[in-house]
Design a protein around this nucleic acid. Structure first.
Lengths: 238, 238
DNA sequence: GGCGGGGTCATTGTATACATTAAAAGGTTT
DNA sequence: AAACCTTTTAATGTATACAATGACCCCGCC
């Protein structure tokens, strides 16, 4: 027999993916306590890989671990978001600036293709949710291509982390179509800047792109109040 | 009794600190294989905390973990170093630029005090090793104060990581006194820039400071050749 | 009635035993 | 003799049992 139950990925990876996805889709809201024993059932693996997954998530700022008290889903304040997007603007701008000097024709083609696909998606008559998620996927392609073109693997990694955090801060990703249209225009302008090898232009438009994204979150992000670490001691006796 | 064997820190923390220090002081050279069972004896704790320590070190780029093959001390190529210091220059410059607008009188005093201490250390007749390590400590104080003054906790964390990596890349920290003197002058100039709230000046001098540090490593960093993952199968049977 | 002390519990931290992987060794075949 | 398959074995990945911490709760005391 060819494979059957040959494993697809380690238990730790599965636990990591499961928990991470549940945080992103809101199953585990900000400040939710993540108990290891509960996650054991939830993920279907033993505590060892669950713990490993939690440590990874902590390293990536998805959860906060306090010694002897376990993990909580990280919550984001307004200041955190400002901080996050300010750094993103700086670094994505820098990446675009570097990319403008060295983007390969192949990468330019890839970006152009992604933008054309976005056009197709936006003018299609698919349900809005589908349009949004497809747009987000293509958006990621564009950005990652720019990061790679910047030629700095470390910059790429850091930007990956920052974007993950930004994604988490969304929690419920409600995107307006006008917001997406704005974003789309930025991408088109970015492509022109890269094609003309105009580093300053590329950097500037990318920074605008990120700042606009921050501003769009403004309305959507209520400042969650910090909750106590142990919310309730199980249900009271009767 | 007051404390006796009350624990100072968890086993995982101790393992982390032990391994990390051994990497920094050269006991575990680049590309060295770190076997969990050996580290159990070396650190005096069981495999569980050793594994946790290794994962942490991997997240901080001190080691590289390959699935089912364990951990290796990370080795740094010239390109890695260029990448690292380019990012450091950008981010430390940015931090200095932001700090210039908001450094508190207290922080300015702290930086000034550290610089005066450096003066004292450099003109003392202590052994050179001692002078160097004391200078490095004060150097860290100056930089961390600037980071904190930048007002971005995330920036502070990332810079912390980058500096750790730079430290590791040194391996054997051989610093010439002329290099230190140059560094000292940069610090003095940085202080003046901050005191006069000149953001552009602060950013520029900080960038110079970092680039100079990269250049100083130029001579000291031989490009280590990657070694196979399993070096030797224990000693051959006679 | 509020406040402090001690016991109990849930939960995390650590150790260890077992399962699984993949590299190395050794023998067989062409 | 070289290449392939099988066996061995050393290492990591996972599960589970045990230890230790810290929070909650109840009771006694002020």
């Amino acid at each position: 027999m060819e494979s059957g139950a040959s494993y697809v990925s380690s238990a730790a990876d599965r636990a990591y993916a499961t928990i991470r996805a549940s945080i992103l889709n809101g199953t585990f809201p900000p400040n939710a306590r993540l108990k290891e024993t509960e996650l054991v059932d939830f993920c279907g693996v033993s505590r060892t890989p669950v713990r490993e997954a939690l440590r990874r998530l902590a390293a990536e700022d998805f959860v906060v671990i306090t010694r002897n008290q376990g993990a909580q889903v990280k919550s984001w304040s307004h200041d955190d978001l400002d901080d996050l997007f300010a750094l993103r603007a700086l670094l994505e701008g820098h990446a675009a600036e570097r990319a403008a000097r060295r983007t390969s024709p192949e990468d330019l083609r890839r970006i152009a293709a992604a933008i054309e696909e976005m056009d197709a998606v936006l003018t299609s008559d698919a349900p809005q949710d589908e349009k949004v998620s497809e747009f987000l996927r293509l958006n990621r392609v564009v950005h990652e291509t720019v990061w790679r073109a910047s030629g700095s693997s470390r910059l790429m990694r850091i930007l990956g982390h920052l974007v993950e955090q930004a994604l988490m801060a969304h929690t419920a990703q409600r995107f307006s179509l006008t917001r997406i249209a704005e974003s789309h225009h930025h991408h088109q302008e970015l492509l022109r800047a890269l094609e003309s090898r105009d580093a300053a232009w590329a950097e500037a438009i990318m920074r605008s792109h990120i700042h606009a994204a921050r501003r769009a979150l403004e309305h959507a992000a209520p400042n969650p109040q910090p909750r106590p670490l142990r919310p309730r001691p199980a249900s009271p006796v009767e």
